[in-house]
Each structure stands twice: as structure tokens, then as C-alpha cells.
Design a protein around this nucleic acid. Structure first.
Lengths: 230, 230
DNA sequence: GCAAAAGTGTTGTAACTACACCCATGT
DNA sequence: ACATGGGTGTAGTTACAACACTTTTGC
């Protein structure tokens, strides 16, 4: 290493949430500083010398927006030489899932505004953040089939149709209601509750369901694998 | 970013190869410099300011070992605060597949020796490279099922049993020969040649086969998905 | 002729797809 | 009464798992 290395390291987070109003959404912030001031971007920032990569993500997110993260994993590292106009910045992107009901968004002093945007209706984004979100959506799509992470987006109790709608939105294709329910229930990790959904809008009210996480981990240890291809 | 960031960025590569003698193997180098001098490690090194992450991998690999890479993708970024004893180094690990027949390994001036090690018989490794290899093996295992990357480890023409053995080694479980062949041939991307394998050791000689890459891409565009779960 | 590896089919079972009508509620 | 969304079963098809004997070659 003869030449001095001059590269900065940052983390960015693509957080997904699901809301009745907005559907499947990504959390964005409006920047209060240059570069790309007043533009929408992913929450994130530079890594401190003495913190792990994940710690940096948690710190930035709490600082900037007040979210509570339910699931977090590393997504991909973006290192194009000119992705930041100031100087070279390599960013380690994370992928997270949150339950938007369980906290209140706020904007910190570094941030003008924090807001959920439906994944099909994103604004213009700073840096290469559009690309990062694309990669995150693909990951979500691939992962929701083979792991029960969809439940990390829903409240503890949910009507079955929310689960159905979530899958159909993320996979971007219609699903057969009967087959989907049959398959999901057969896995044995979703329990039907003896409780009706509170009536919003018209239609017959349905029962609420919950995901049985402990049961899932128990089964998983025995070689069970979740799969919801439909 | 008030405090000065003092983190270095490196790349490491986990390259897999398949040889009749060694089986499924990883390319390792013996270090000629501190830290961990004279220990085995993954090929890799620091990123230059003006090169992309992938370019850094190609440069280091060619410099150090002379391999020709057939397939390369980013694996994961390892950023534990103390993973390097000198100072903080974040390493972006890559995952690659090579055909060991198609080149000759050498050791550069930075490296005492470059050698293939069977994945079940690894030596003690420098840094957190053992962990990196574990992650790479899991990726290989997950990926070989859903994408035809196994062929990137085999020569253009191969006996069917090599393919079978490759899958059974990587997946670490026995496979049913008849069902495996039936399924693989049904996909329509492997062609049987009119050529016998050169006779090595005893047994009935079999035909050679080849992977039809163009046909695979053609089918893929039409929505075809490769899958070899058996 | 013996050891080693290649070649080859069938059958039972489980999973998947496609598909349409009735029910409970709010307005 | 009508609009909205919830609930439910069957039949045909396809994919999967299990399984053993014969053939060709080298020694």
C-alpha cells in the first residue's frame, strides 16, 4: 500500500414498512446539508472509527428518524468511484423491515423531513440511492418467498388479506387467494385468532391472524423450511 | 462528520475451483508480509483511490496468483472493529468461480505460495478469513441450486458424474443419480456429446456433456428458471 | 471373472393449478 | 337492496421420491 488511501466509509439503510394507506413503502429523508441539499435520500451517514457497521446504522437511524427496527441485514456495498461528488465514498447499504405502527417518525436537526414513500412512487433521489433501493426491492422479493420476513412488516395481529396484499405487492403479481391461504396455513406458523378485525370500510369483517415466531424457530431447528412461491 | 475517519478499505476474494484430485477447493496464499506472516490467507489487498471494487479484486488476483476468473460477485462486507490487528480495516469480500485447468497458478513477489485447498480440509487462516470462507460456502450452496453456476467450475466438456459429484459435494448430501440426471437433462441446457471421456482409472467410460450457455440465456429471457434442488 | 463406474424406468405419493359461489357487514 | 370484501372445496395435472439391475471397460 504505497499510495495513501483516501476513501470514506458510510452506511445507508433501505427500510421497508407497510401501511394500509401507503402500501409497501421505503423510508426517505429530505437532506438539510450539501451535497444534494433539499433532495430526498436514504437515511445514513459516516461510520465512526470505533463502532461496528450495524451500530452505525442503528445510530444514524435513531438520530435521524426515530424508527424502531425489526429486522436488519447487510444488503450490498456500493463503491463506484464517482458516486459521491465530493470525494470517494464507499457505502455499505443495509436492508431493514419495520412496523410503522409501533413508533412515530420525526425529523432530527440534520434532516428536514422523514417520510414513507410507496415503492412504486418514489421521488427523485440523491446519489445512487435509486439503484440501492432497486437492489433492496429485489432482495425483499427474493427473501419473502423463502423466509417468513413478511410478518416483520405487519402488526402482531393482522387480517389475512393484509398478508395476501403484501405478498402480491412485493412479488408484483396477482395471487390466488384460496391457494395462498391453504399453503400459508398448512405451514403451521400462522394462527387464526378468535377476534374480528375492527371494521374499516365496507365488507364482511374477517378474523385476525398472528405469526407464531417461536413455533417457526422450533420447526426450523428440525429442518423445516418456509416457502411461499405462490 | 466531526471526527476524522481513520478506516482502511480492502478487498478479499474467495475463489472456488474444482479438480478431480482436490475436489471443491478454495484458493489460498501464504503471506510474505506482516501481520500474519507465513500464514495462509485469502488473496486480496487495499483498494486504490481511483479503481472500482471489482477492478481491485481483478488486479490483486492477477498480481498475486495468475488466475483467470470465470464468475465474480460481491459476497459480503466484513467490518468488525478489531478484525485487523494493525488498525481498522473494512474488507469487501468477493466470491468467484474459476476453471483451474485453464491457467497455471504462480506466486508473486508479495506471496510465498498460492495453493488450492479442499473446502473440508482448510489450514489455519489469518484475520477472519475462516469466517469469510464459511459465508462464501453458504453462498455457493444456496446459489448452485437456483443458478447454473456449477458449470463455471467445470471444463467445457465434462463427464456427467463430475457434475453429480460437484453438486453432492457442495450440497453436502448424497444425491440420487437417476433423478438428478433426469431433472438436469429435462431443463434443456445440457447437451450430451458424441465423445467418450478419456479413460482414467477403471469403470465403464461415459459420454462427455457440455453446458449450453447461450440456450440458458435465451430461455431465461422467456421466464425460465433453473432449479436443481435434488 | 472381478471390480468399478455408467446407463436406464416405473410407480406411488404429494404438491400445485385452476376455478366460482355464498356469506356477513355497512350504507 | 346493493356494494364490498371474507370465506371456502374439488378435480385434474404435474413434479418428486424411492428404488436395482445390466453394461462396458481395465486389471
Amino acid at each position: 500500500m504505497p499510495i495513501k488511501q483516501n476513501i470514506k466509509l458510510a452506511v445507508d439503510a433501505v427500510l421497508f414498512g407497510y401501511m394500509k394507506e401507503e402500501g409497501v413503502s421505503v423510508l426517505l429523508i429530505k437532506r438539510k446539508i450539501e451535497p444534494f441539499i433539499h433532495q430526498w435520500a436514504l437515511p445514513g451517514g459516516f461510520i465512526h472509527n470505533d463502532e461496528s457497521l450495524e451500530d452505525a446504522v442503528y445510530r444514524e437511524l435513531e438520530e435521524e428518524t426515530g424508527v424502531k427496527i425489526n429486522y436488519l441485514e447487510q444488503l450490498y456495498t456500493f463503491g463506484d468511484v464517482h458516486r459521491d461528488p465530493r470525494q470517494r465514498v464507499v457505502s455499505i447499504a443495509y436492508f431493514g423491515l419495520v412496523k410503522p405502527e409501533s413508533f412515530k417518525l420525526f425529523a432530527s436537526t440534520d434532516v428536514e423531513e422523514a417520510k414513507w414513500y410507496n415503492i412504486k412512487n418514489l421521488p427523485k433521489l440523491a446519489f445512487d440511492h435509486k439503484k440501492i433501493i432497486q437492489v433492496a426491492i429485489e432482495r425483499l422479493r427474493g427473501k419473502i418467498i423463502y423466509e417468513p420476513i413478511g410478518f416483520e412488516l405487519l402488526p402482531a395481529k393482522f387480517p389475512f388479506s393484509d398478508l395476501e396484499y403484501l405478498y402480491s405487492t412485493v412479488l408484483d403479481r396477482p395471487i390466488d387467494r384460496r391457494n395462498f391461504k391453504k399453503k400459508m396455513m398448512k405451514l403451521g406458523i400462522v394462527t387464526e385468532l378468535d377476534e374480528k378485525a375492527s371494521l374499516s370500510s365496507a365488507g364482511r369483517p374477517g378474523n385476525l391472524f398472528k405469526f407464531n415466531k417461536e413455533e417457526y424457530f422450533r420447526l426450523k431447528k428440525q429442518g423445516f423450511t418456509f416457502e411461499m412461491s405462490a
